[in-house]
Amino acid sequence: MTHSPDNKRRQGCRDTQALAAGAMPLVARIAAAIFGGYACSAVFCVALARLLPLSKADSTLTAMMSSFVLYAVAVIYAFGATSVWRVWGLLAGLPLLCYALLQLLG
């Protein structure tokens, strides 16, 4: 998909038909966006609730309200970035790393 020349692809649905030939990267991006994005925002939510210097209720509330921004950013990144490997690396790796860190912190 990233290898086809630009001038052949003009309209949205013809793009998708061409993409079917290289479907794996697209499916990978969609999976990364939906599941990786959710994982990132969920871990961010927990981390922010733990780390914010406000009262317990306030930091929980703030964390929950802000998490959706991260989800949106993650989805945009998943489709905007050039390398699918980097996308997966970040959107799967980051939540795992942060989760491990949080478990260590207690």
Partner: peptide, 21 residues
């Protein structure tokens, strides 16, 4: 759109409540 997500955020992002409460 964003406030819509927030109205039901207790269902969508309950993880902070899980960990803190």
């Amino acid at each position: 759109t964003y406030s819509g997500l927030i109205t039901l955020m207790f269902i969508y992002m309950p993880w902070a409540i899980q960990s803190q409460y």
